[in-house]
Design a binder for these strands. Structure first.
Length: 216
DNA sequence: ACCCAGGGTCATA
DNA sequence: TATGACCATGGG
């Protein structure tokens, strides 16, 4: 069988899992806060932290900027790395206000916005791209650890390759369509949740049909 | 008791 | 530039 294309993998995942409703958040700002809180952290923990922010009536940029560090850290405690993340949220919230909140951010060209997000301490490529894709509605492909793992196993990516190179690969292989990129990343996360977390292969993996899945 | 999770930064060589 | 240490909670 020929190598599967990224589009074929997408269709396989979509058929297997159906349409995902992503990102789970009630507002763009909540989405961006979630992007920081979920760094190397289980989403369940993030839900608690966001629930705490809502309960404290602190889920807006002004409240986060004005909050006392200790208080903010305490509120987001369940998400782990709470000291770091409190600083990151305050830094980002200041940026968010300074740039005209969501409408201001959405007016910026995608590449410029990406550079500016990356310039903030605590926002790396995956966090920046998640924000661009789900809050600012720019068609960027989000690369996460699962993406790397899955496509390496499929034999479509080599092990030694950095974030931007992987992203370039998908940008070349797919039409830059917002809904496609939003759905694709969501499906990859959903796939990882169901399969291949600790165990590499389970018999029900929908990607088993897609040729080389298993090598490495 | 160990491993992982919807990463990123910083110090060291 | 390329590893390693570090951040920290909650669930399997």
């Amino acid at each position: 069988m020929n190598d599967p294309t990224p589009l074929l993998i997408f269709e396989t995942l979509l058929t297997a899992y159906g349409h995902q409703q992503w990102w789970p958040a009630e507002s763009p700002f909540e989405m961006m806060v979630g992007a920081v809180l979920t760094q190397n952290t289980n989403w369940k923990n993030v839900e608690q932290a966001i629930g705490n922010l809502k309960a404290a009536n602190m889920l807006d940029a002004a409240s986060i900027v004005c909050a006392d560090h200790e208080q903010l850290a305490g509120v987001i405690r369940p998400s782990g790395f709470f000291n770091q993340k409190a600083c990151r949220l305050q830094l980002f919230s200041r940026f968010y206000i300074a740039h005209g909140e969501i409408s201001g951010l959405r007016k910026q060209p995608m590449d410029e916005m990406r550079v500016q997000l990356l310039a903030l301490s605590g926002i790396g490529p995956e966090t920046a791209d998640s924000m661009l894709l789900y809050a600012l509605e720019k068609p960027v492909f989000v690369v996460d650890a699962y993406t790397r793992r899955i496509f390496t196993r499929l034999g479509l990516l080599s092990g030694k390759i950095d974030y931007d190179a992987i992203q370039n690969y998908f940008h070349q292989q797919l039409e830059p369509q917002l809904s496609l990129f939003q759905e694709y990343h969501a499906l990859i996360v959903e796939h990882a949740k169901r399969h291949c977390r600790s165990k590499p292969l389970c018999g029900k993996c929908p990607l088993l049909n897609s040729c080389n899945y298993s090598k490495q």
